[in-house]
Amino acid sequence: MKILKLLDQQFPFLDSVRNRWILIIFSLVFSIFFINVFVPWNINRWNNDSGIEEFIHLSGFGVIAALVLLISQFSIRKLVRLKHFRIWTFAVWVFCELFVMATLFSFYQASWDVNINRFFQDIPNSFKYTLLAILIPYSLIILFLSYVTQKSKLKQLAETKDLDDKAGLINFMDEKGNVRFSILGDQILYLESADNYVVIYYKSDERLAKQMLRNSMKNIESFLTNSNFKRCHRSFMVNLQKIEFIEFEKSTCRIKLFGLENFIPVSRKFFPEFRSFTIR
């Protein structure tokens, strides 16, 4: 189940047009450089070219790879209306891209005149070489985009906290870093995780209201560090200013919040830290 949840997570690094162009251009430049400088698998001996003709021929592999990525990331994604990847759809998508590249490389190497029987014999090796060559720039650029995205999110989180400290507002962002709604901090009672969502419970006109946010409790906890909110359970965070009383037991406790009938549990994992934080 954990593996299925992991595979079903969002993969946002190729959502923007800018990031897709970065992938395509970097793959083109890297492939042309790599194949001409390092000449993997003695690929320069597969044909009788030399000099500028050899450079043009070898560079053709990089151009083909870039064209496949261009068509895949723009035309085909638009055709199938795929705006956002999940990890599993991204993996399948990359596999299909690599297979198409391997097929075109086989035809290109044979000057577009391929015998079907020979093609099926060559395609496994062609796919292997494509996998080894193209995954290098693909992996590098995904790591780079992941770093840039996370850095941007952290910066946005810091700016958001600084901007709204005076107003007492807390801006809640989804897993992509987009602000979905803002709530006064002193109106919030507690937060509860529910699958891939976090539910924020707050007071509105003396009644209990809630808002759902697509994000993880871990991300929200990180965002609310050094605030009045404290994680007390795998599924709960509470506003320390809204605690009416705490009922302690041997190695755990439960919390009663103002205006709330049900108790909020404190798990054994969070009990020591929570106890030291509340009892002074």
Rank of each mutant, 00 (worst) to 15 (best):
I200K: 05
Q156D: 12
L69Q: 06
L14Q: 01
H57P: 01
W46Y: 12
A66M: 05
E244R: 14
I279G: 08
K2T: 07
W112A: 14
F90C: 07
R275L: 07
Q10H: 09
A209S: 04
H233P: 15
L82S: 02
C253N: 08
R275W: 02
R18K: 11
I255G: 04
I32M: 09
C232K: 12
V29I: 13
I56A: 08
V100D: 00
S31K: 02
Q121H: 05
L98S: 13
N219D: 13
L58I: 08
M101W: 00
K166A: 12
K155Q: 10
A66E: 05
M101V: 14
N262C: 09
Y129L: 10
F120T: 09
S146P: 01
G185P: 04
Q10V: 06
A66S: 14
K83T: 14
S222C: 07
N171F: 01
K83L: 13
S59W: 08
D195C: 04
S276T: 09
N125Y: 15
N171C: 06
L169P: 06
F248A: 12
N48R: 08
R214T: 11
D122F: 10
E54D: 13
R81H: 13
Q150S: 12
I43H: 02
S251L: 06
I87K: 03
Y108L: 05
C232H: 08
D8S: 13
P137T: 13
L189N: 10
V39A: 14
I71V: 15
L98D: 00
N125H: 07
